[in-house]
Simulated assay, not measured.
Amino acid sequence: MRLAQIAQRADDLTRAADFYTVLLDRGPVATYDPPGLLFFDLDGVRLLLDRNAPSALIYLHVDNVHETLERLEGLAAVVTPPHVIFTHEDDGLGPAGHEEWQAFIRDSEGNTVGLIAFQRP
């Protein structure tokens, strides 16, 4: 079993498409309006932006939290600035010997999105 799709609320599909195209560094793969559905491919997992979906807290893996926030400057509000949550001693939840950095932003639709990066200290 694997994760196939995550849905996130988006009232304005055009605004959400613009925001997530910058965040994900790739464009949407499909739009169906009506009924108000916008899809991005996250390496085999679909991110569905949907006018009728509830807000979800999703976490996205990025190469570098700081660089991602720089790219999003003016587009996203920082809810929680970048910080190290812990260092992985083994490969149980992340690569051994790496710090796990997280930050939280508010997207164009008011949803909170977590950003995660694994970096060597």
Rank of each mutant, 00 (worst) to 15 (best):
residue 2 R to I: 14
residue 2 R to C: 09
residue 3 L to W: 04
residue 3 L to E: 05
residue 3 L to H: 00
residue 7 A to R: 01
residue 7 A to I: 03
residue 7 A to Y: 09
residue 8 Q to F: 12
residue 8 Q to I: 12
residue 8 Q to D: 00
residue 8 Q to C: 10
residue 9 R to F: 01
residue 10 A to Y: 02
residue 11 D to C: 03
residue 11 D to G: 10
residue 13 L to D: 02
residue 14 T to W: 14
residue 14 T to Q: 15
residue 16 A to I: 08
residue 16 A to V: 06
residue 16 A to T: 06
residue 17 A to E: 15
residue 17 A to I: 04
residue 20 Y to G: 07
residue 20 Y to P: 12
residue 22 V to A: 12
residue 24 L to F: 07
residue 24 L to T: 02
residue 24 L to G: 05
residue 25 D to P: 02
residue 29 V to R: 09
residue 30 A to H: 03
residue 31 T to N: 11
residue 32 Y to T: 12
residue 32 Y to H: 14
residue 34 P to E: 06
residue 34 P to L: 11
residue 34 P to I: 00
residue 34 P to D: 10
residue 36 G to L: 01
residue 36 G to A: 03
residue 36 G to N: 10
residue 39 F to G: 02
residue 40 F to Y: 00
residue 43 D to T: 11
residue 45 V to A: 11
residue 45 V to N: 02
residue 47 L to D: 04
residue 47 L to V: 09
residue 48 L to D: 01
residue 48 L to V: 13
residue 50 D to S: 11
residue 53 A to F: 04
residue 53 A to V: 01
residue 54 P to E: 03
residue 58 I to H: 02
residue 60 L to Q: 07
residue 60 L to E: 11
residue 62 V to C: 03
residue 62 V to W: 07
residue 63 D to P: 07
residue 63 D to M: 00
residue 64 N to P: 07
residue 65 V to N: 08
residue 66 H to I: 09
residue 66 H to C: 03
residue 66 H to Q: 13
residue 67 E to K: 04
residue 67 E to P: 00
residue 69 L to D: 02
residue 69 L to H: 06
residue 69 L to M: 06
residue 73 E to G: 00
residue 75 L to E: 12
residue 76 A to K: 08
residue 76 A to Q: 09
residue 77 A to H: 14
residue 78 V to C: 05
residue 78 V to I: 15
residue 78 V to W: 03
residue 82 P to G: 07
residue 90 D to P: 04
residue 90 D to G: 14
residue 91 D to L: 12
residue 91 D to C: 10
residue 92 G to D: 10
residue 93 L to E: 04
residue 93 L to T: 07
residue 94 G to S: 05
residue 94 G to H: 00
residue 98 H to Q: 05
residue 102 Q to G: 07
residue 103 A to T: 10
residue 104 F to W: 08
residue 107 D to M: 11
residue 107 D to Y: 09
residue 108 S to E: 04
residue 110 G to Q: 00
residue 110 G to E: 07
residue 111 N to R: 13
residue 113 V to W: 02
residue 114 G to L: 13
residue 114 G to S: 12
residue 115 L to G: 02
residue 115 L to E: 08
residue 117 A to Q: 01
residue 117 A to H: 13
residue 117 A to F: 14
residue 118 F to P: 08
residue 118 F to Y: 15
residue 119 Q to Y: 08
residue 120 R to V: 14
